[in-house]
Design a protein around this nucleic acid. Sequence first.
DNA 1: TTTCTTTCTTGTCTTTTGTAAACGTTTTCC
DNA 2: GGAAAACGTTTACAAAAGACAAGAAAGAAA
Lengths: 192, 192
Amino acid sequence: MTEQFFTFTDKIVNFTKANKELLATALSFRQVTTKTELVSYNKRTDELYFLLKGCLRKYYVKDGEQITIYITAENSFIGAFDSFVTGTPSKETIETLEPTELLVLNKKDLTRLYKEIPLMNEFVRKILEQTLIQFQQALTSFILDSPEERYTKLLSQNPQILQRVPQHMLATYLGITATSLSRIRKRILEKS
Amino acid sequence: MTEQFFTFTDKIVNFTKANKELLATALSFRQVTTKTELVSYNKRTDELYFLLKGCLRKYYVKDGEQITIYITAENSFIGAFDSFVTGTPSKETIETLEPTELLVLNKKDLTRLYKEIPLMNEFVRKILEQTLIQFQQALTSFILDSPEERYTKLLSQNPQILQRVPQHMLATYLGITATSLSRIRKRILEKS
DNA sequence: TTTCTTTCTTGTCTTTTGTAAACGTTTTCC
DNA sequence: GGAAAACGTTTACAAAAGACAAGAAAGAAA
């Protein structure tokens, strides 16, 4: 159950066997159905998730509409970082889009691991470095690219996601309405 | 010269005197004029900067136009993280907008500091956590808010920046053209 | 000061997106 | 299986943004 997780960590740092045993005791397995809220609006969260199987999204509610701001699938960490780090109620909701299997790490255990495993700070630092680069690329794409360009980029970089996520969620994720995405798709079809 | 930097670090972790002496030897002071490129297009960078005084922006070139993707001022770290971390040529340019004073930390020294100062990983991890939250908020604002909302938010959260950065740079930073920002400003004036 | 450059605004026209509503299709779930 | 909900597309109209060009205003430099 944790092999998949350590396959992931092995690409980042060299945890010792002892490290991994400690880590494994801190991780709890959780299996949830579609549409489960892992983090809810205005609730504090002290959990981080490692996705073993399935698909999640993060969304905000604005004017009564759900606006998807993040989508991710297998072998990645996700959490409501703001609430997790600062302890404030979360403005974002994290919800499963499929039956999902995760490993859960809570803040208390993470704090303990930072003390017990010196490599832990380095591990998390490297994860954060990668995540930051990803976020900066996403942010840059919003500034540089048109919605149509963002869609075609998503199409080429992450074609699987299109099979797993409803189009109206993709639309808000691209910063546009479902109507507009439908038009963009039509436009692209007509070009080819 | 480094007091200002340690005032900053003291808010994050408790470096010992010995830590600070080590750190200080790794930091070099640099004073540059307006429009100096700290990181240039297609060049690798192995430097991170801590801004003591002045103002910087990061920009991309698209279709011959400079598109500003980040602006920052005193007491913050900046660098072309992608190039810095992965060693690939930078697609972004970092340029001063004012006469600027900085502390420079290069990658070799940072790598050394990670080994010599255990707290260093924690320090950088915490900086990255904060930066990630900021980036996520910026990204979210692009998805959730209209250009007009982004402008008024910037106005209320960071009014000083408006005095220091030309409007056409702010415009691209907001994801719109200078023309459009000018009209938004007019619209806001007429409302009040 | 005078000149030159940069910056900002305005006008016109075109394209894109948003809003709201309708409609057919697919999926979900008793 | 059948009802209800969710999903995707389309249409008409309104609002916003982009492109391009012209010109005013402000700053920097000779």
